[in-house]
């Protein structure tokens, strides 16, 4: 008797989500199987990768990744245009680092102005991220949301402590929204429920279960993502069927392995290759766990991830 490989089938599927407009719009999600399991069901969309851009020079990025942008990173507009026009970015993720009270404490109005300028300079979809300071983000993202009105951009991140204001702003301006919880699947579900109870359309949501870097908690993120995907598919749990986001670059480019000099640790090999591979391996792990949108920094790491996606023959 010939061997027939067993196939899993599921009751649920994830929501399709589109960000941006026109022919540059990007759609992710809609699959009814685990990541890359097209042989078991339907995987209509590829995961997407966004290039991270900051609203201030990347003074805390290691040389490997900072030098790529050294001629453009003095301003977010030139930086974003470089990513779009020269590096082929399909999505820009603008992080408003300078609004953080410890990083310059730029005002909400200044942040809104930055977003307005970046929006005017690019035609690919935009993700706008606060500085991960819950209180300040609430104030900043409300102003930013007004500027983003009508652009179908993705706004983030709403957390347990600030979601009410940010959800209201996203609703009022018809934006997509990232809901982030801290590596806890039950709290992730709870936050999605609370956001839904405010009247926010669950099909406009992106779940960020919180990222991590290889050898610095990657297995926690991986496991939470995998369990979210299984609850979405096997238990048909609509509160967990939003596409997932992995904010990879910010975690990878601060760990020792992407920073330690070759002179100090010759056994670890080339610092440059080490950093790029660290980001690529972290990112592909999350793709396998079920991430739909990645935010990354180094173009060569992004290139490796895109090649991986193509090799997996998602379509």
């Amino acid at each position: 008797m010939p061997f027939t490989p067993p196939k899993e089938s599921y009751n649920g599927k994830t929501f399709e989500l589109t960000i941006g407009q026109g022919d540059k719009a990007v759609t992710v999600g809609g699959e009814n199987v685990l990541a890359f399991h097209a042989f078991e069901g339907s995987v209509p969309r590829e995961p997407a990768v966004a290039f991270e851009v900051q609203d201030m020079p990347p003074d805390d990025w290691p040389e490997t990744v900072a030098e790529v942008f050294k001629n453009v990173s003095s301003g977010p507009v030139t930086w974003a245009k470089y990513c779009q026009d020269s590096l082929g970015a399909g999505i820009i993720a603008l992080r408003l680092v300078s609004t953080h009270p410890d990083r310059g404490d730029a005002s909400a109005d200044q942040a809104a102005e930055t977003v307005r300028k970046v929006l005017a300079a690019i035609n690919v979809p935009l993700i706008v991220l606060g500085s991960n300071h819950a209180e300040k983000d609430a104030a900043v993202l409300v102003k930013v949301a007004e500027v983003l009105k009508g652009t179908n951009s993705l706004l983030g991140k709403a957390q347990e402590s600030n979601y009410k204001t940010i959800v209201a702003a996203a609703m009022a301006n018809d934006l997509k929204l990232i809901a982030m919880s801290e590596l806890d699947i039950n709290l992730s579900k709870q936050l999605n429920i609370l956001i839904g109870q405010m009247g926010f359309d669950k099909e406009k949501l992106v779940t960020d279960p919180m990222s991590s870097a290889l050898s610095y908690g990657l297995e926690y993120t991986y496991s939470v993502m995998e369990r979210i995907k299984l609850a979405a598919l096997a238990q048909n749990d609509a509160t967990l069927q939003a596409p997932m986001l992995a904010d990879v670059g910010m975690f990878v480019w601060k760990v020792k392995e992407t920073q330690a000099a070759e002179a100090d640790l010759p056994a670890w090999g080339s610092l440059r290759e080490r950093g790029i591979e660290w980001e690529a391996v972290t990112a592909t792990s999350f793709l396998i766990a079920g991430a739909d949108i990645l935010i990354m920094r180094h173009p060569e790491a992004i290139g490796a991830v895109k090649k991986f996606i193509a090799d997996m023959e998602v379509k």
Binding site: N186, L187, Q190, I193, L194, Q197, A231, Q235, D237, T239
Partner: peptide, 12 residues
């Protein structure tokens, strides 16, 4: 274990 727990599970 048929449904994932969340604090608001009764409201779903």
């Amino acid at each position: 274990g048929k449904t994932l727990y969340a604090h608001s599970y009764l409201e779903m």
